[in-house]
Simulated assay, not measured.
Amino acid sequence: MKILAIESSCDEFSISIIDDGKILTNIISSQIEQHVNFGGVVPELAARLHLENISWVIKAALDTTNTKVETIDYVAYTEKPGLIGSLIIGRLVAETIASYINKPLMPLHHIEGHIYGASIENEFIYPVLAMVVSGGHTQIEIVNSPNDFKVVGTTLDDAIGECYDKVARVIGLEYPGGPKLDKLAKEGNQTAFKFPISKNDESYDFSYSGLKTAVINLIHNLNQKNEEIPVADIAASFQYAATKIVETKLAKAIEEFKPKTLTVAGGVSANSEIRKIIIELGQKYGISNTFVPKMEYCTDNAAMIAKLAYEKLKISK
């Protein structure tokens, strides 16, 4: 069973081919350099660049695997959520290929794909407790099968990745600021500033707007006093507050839902502190099937959509 998958929800256009569960290729066209000058993703530009890159991405995916498009059995694509223009382009490409080869089309969910991206080189034992951390989402999900996802907690305002990027911008780091802030935090003192650990309650929901505002206010106050901005200490203190609540909520969820697999998904799953928290929680609670995704599967990519499609088809047989 060979599946061609397309991911185009934001500023990456990616095509992957999976054959009986093995990823054959995962071609990604990234646009980071084109969006740097704007300090973030410009939706109209992202869609336009997808159009420019479609041809070579498709050709590279087929050529690197010596695959003839007629041998594809299913065409999967990201249906939602994401930037509307980018999603439409991915859908049109998928519909065109599926129509040309007369094969079934599979519209899939971006976040579900991220979760299954973590299982590309691992196997889920259900139930799975997945921490979704990205630029647009912060969620705790229970996964009982490729068709059974339950969101038990979500952010009420900013997502963790969005908060990272906004704080990074304020302390002078270029977009994408999250990875740079993570690196800078290693040089600072996480106890230098006491930022609020927001939504520290009995729910599984998250809130990051207060933390973002606290950091911005601190920097404004230091600027007004003409004091030096200790960026490394601010980064370290921010990262502690941003990730400590993840650890707290996940520990509570582990105790309640007793998962057999613990993992993390989304762009911020590349964050060193988040990855450390997942592994340590797995060890603390004796969850032997605990893992984090390979770095190449953290950000948006079509391999995660291909894996989700494969797992769904496998249980439908």
Rank of each mutant, 00 (worst) to 15 (best):
G113M: 12
Y126G: 05
Y116S: 02
G113Y: 10
P81A: 06
H114G: 05
N66T: 04
I88A: 07
T64M: 10
N66V: 03
V132Q: 05
Y74I: 11
E70T: 03
G90R: 08
Y74C: 05
T71L: 08
F124E: 06
A94P: 03
T65W: 05
A130L: 02
V75N: 03
H110P: 12
A61N: 02
H109D: 15
K80D: 15
Y126D: 04
P127E: 02
Y126K: 10
P107Y: 14
A60R: 15
L87C: 04
N102C: 06
S119G: 11
E95D: 01
T65M: 01
I84N: 10
E123H: 02
L105T: 15
R91V: 07
I84R: 12
T71R: 10
V128E: 01
A118F: 04
I88V: 15
I111M: 13
A130I: 05
L129F: 07
P104G: 06
P127T: 05
E121H: 11
S99P: 09
K68G: 03
L83S: 05
I120F: 03
P107H: 12
N122K: 14
H110A: 12
A118C: 09
N122T: 10
T64K: 15
P81V: 01
A118V: 09
T65Q: 00
R91E: 07
E79A: 14
A130V: 07
V75R: 06
E79I: 00
D63F: 04
P107T: 08
I72F: 05
V128W: 10
A98T: 08
P104T: 09
E121G: 12
E123I: 11
S119R: 11
L108K: 13
E121I: 05
L105W: 00
L87M: 06
A76I: 09
F124Y: 15
M106N: 06
